[in-house]
Write a protein that binds this DNA or RNA. Structure first.
Length: 579
DNA sequence: GCCGTTTTCGGCCCGACTGTTTTCAGTCG
């Protein structure tokens, strides 16, 4: 049983407890413990006797985890399940419905699932309950409809496009002093549910009017004095957006507050409390004097809490406050220092541009090197290169390299890992390449043992330098391969194989949490590449770099931030290598 | 249920908005 499963188990307990009217702090204790476990570096099953050393886990929860891990059962969970219908927690997903309302619906009307709730609402049977009325009834019906029909998860790249556009539209407004998108988009999370904006103005009423009359607004969901929620439609994409309006003095605090994450904010407020302060979206209040302090920017806000500036990407309550207190935050990498892409495709396989065109685009971005890594021969759907094609490509690269100063084109391949873990080119061919990325593109449904062994076998090949998109997920479309990530990392460590962070916003693979784990527990090294199939995709590197920041990586950990003469020393060396 | 430079009890982050109320509970972020 892995940490994720244990965390899910505790989350399930929290849901049931909440629905049965348990003390909110007790419920919260379960949720906190679930979160603490998700962030644990060590597999809990191996730490089963020492669970109480994890902050947030005491005797009670530790005992429940032990029972669940060792027996596969949980008497507490069984008891909860025997008292409440199994589908009741699903009602928590309906917007506007919380534990109190659901408990009442169950107790008074015997509602146990969404279908029954819908029926009761349509028959106006929920109206007489205390706290319910016609509007609530309508809201519930709308919520059920939304749940079943509307898309409410977006790629970072999709959400960011809307956020940037709206920010630009409003920033020209004469009464808006400052505007920024906040929330998960600013933290660069890979999947976004809704947008958040913070606006500084002395004229909230006029600004509100400007917001609700934006051409993208198709629905006004909430409207208060300082907060308005709307539904936006742009590029065939509909997404909710919260706007928070504050006076300019409060802007920095509000920006921090609405950037979150909420778990990060809780930790910030705890830190503040220890210093005798109270933090809210308007500023920091001194407990002694009652004075509200405001800040010109987030940096001075953090400094007042005796912390260095923490970049938004790190604000996930994964230890950033503790690291800030000890000055051990990762050094922030900048895109300007990225020296070259090591995973790109050209017309030779399924790319859209020639080698020369790709090289010119790379030079224009200020790169110093570029690896051409077209697909290998068996990947027919992507026009994989035969060995003869490869020879032809090498000649072209040699010719181009001769004409280039201060730029190096590397001969590479994204070679397929065949279903048995062997590679799609023979070793004598691989040995002649500057850079070999091995990737899985076929038989993606193998069981965990088979897939893990397959990938490890590929890493054991002395000519494989990098594993491309190691988990194979495609966000919102395809699950990762069934691969044992710890075994994969261990093998990478033993074989000296570098793991890729594929920067395409559909992949972001490895993800932030994997990166942190791979660095902390296995001291691995990484490469960030776009996998560009066309020139504009070079720009996707920004998603990779920001995901790497979320994974607590630093320049030093990443191949692409080093000059090629240095970077190539990182690659696995083989005695038969011709290089 | 967890926790302690406020230490074994009594707190636990903080505020906006809605829809229901007749002063506020519930939900959300």
């Amino acid at each position: 049983m892995n940490n994720k499963e244990i965390a899910a188990f505790l989350g399930q307990l929290a849901d049931y407890l909440e629905l049965s009217g348990a003390n909110a702090f007790r419920v919260n204790a379960y949720r906190r413990s679930a979160r603490a476990i998700e962030n644990q570096r060590i597999n809990l099953a191996e730490k089963i006797d020492d669970l109480e050393s994890i902050p947030g886990i005491g005797k009670g929860i530790a005992a429940m985890i032990r029972e669940r891990v060792t027996t596969g059962q949980s008497s507490t969970l069984e008891e909860c399940k025997s008292k409440l219908p199994p589908e009741l927690p699903l009602l928590l997903k309906i917007p506007g419905l919380g534990p109190k309302s659901i408990a009442q619906l169950y107790q008074k009307l015997g509602i146990t699932n969404i279908a029954e709730l819908k029926q009761a609402a349509l028959e106006h049977r929920i109206r007489p309950l205390s706290g319910f009325g016609p509007k609530k009834e309508e809201k519930i019906l709308a919520g059920i409809e939304t749940l079943s029909t509307r898309r409410n998860r977006y790629l970072l790249s999709e959400a960011l496009q809307v956020a940037i556009h709206v920010k630009k539209e409003l920033s020209t407004h004469p009464l808006i002093k400052q505007i920024e998108y906040a929330g998960s988009v600013r933290r660069q999370k890979e999947i976004i549910k809704d947008l958040d904006f913070v606006i500084a103005t002395h004229h909230p009423a006029e600004v509100q009017k400007a917001i609700i009359t934006l051409p993208e607004v198709i629905d006004i969901i909430n409207q208060g004095e300082t907060k308005v929620t709307v539904r936006l439609s742009m590029n065939d994409l509909e997404i909710d957006a919260d706007f928070r309006i504050v006076i300019p003095d409060s802007y920095a605090s509000a920006l921090h507050h609405f950037t979150g994450s909420s778990e990060h904010n809780i930790q910030i407020r705890r830190q503040a409390k220890q210093l005798g302060y109270k933090v809210n979206e308007y500023g920091i209040t001194d407990d002694q004097t009652g004075e509200l302090l405001t800040f010109s920017d987030e940096t001075t806000f953090f400094h007042h809490l005796q912390l260095p500036y923490i970049i938004p990407e790190l604000r996930e309550d994964r230890g950033e406050i503790a690291a800030a207190l000890t000055n051990t935050l990762p050094k922030t990498m900048e895109q300007a220092d990225y020296l070259g892409d090591l995973h790109t495709h050209t017309l030779y396989s399924d790319g859209a541009h020639s080698i020369l065109q790709m090289v010119e685009a790379a030079k224009a971005k200020g790169y110093h090197f570029l690896a051409i890594t077209d697909h290998s021969r068996s990947l027919k759907v992507a026009s994989g290169l035969s060995i003869d094609d490869l020879y032809e490509q090498w000649e072209e690269i040699d010719r181009l390299n001769e004409a280039l100063d201060d730029f190096t084109i590397l001969k590479g391949s994204e070679v397929d890992i065949l279903s048995d873990g062997t590679l799609d080119y023979p070793d004598d061919i691989l040995a002649q390449l500057d850079i070999v990325i091995a990737s899985v593109h076929t038989s993606m449904n193998q069981d965990e043992k088979t897939m893990t062994e397959r990938m490890i076998r590929a890493m054991q090949n002395p000519y494989v330098h990098i594993i491309g998109h190691p988990t194979g997920r495609v966000l919102l479309r395809r699950d990762p391969y069934a691969v044992n990530i710890d075994q994969l990392f261990q093998a990478a460590k033993e074989t000296g194989t570098i793991l890729e962070l594929n920067a395409n916003p559909l992949r972001l693979d490895l993800n932030d949490q994997h990166l942190k784990k791979a660095k902390d527990e296995y001291q691995l090294r990484f490469t960030i590449n776009t996998d560009a199939h066309a020139i504009p995709q070079f720009d996707l590197i920004e998603y990779g770099i920001r995901t790497a920041r979320r994974g607590w990586l630093e320049k030093e950990d990443i191949l692409n931030f080093h000059p090629w003469s240095e970077a190539k020393q990182w690659l696995k060396t083989s005695t038969v290598s011709s290089k």
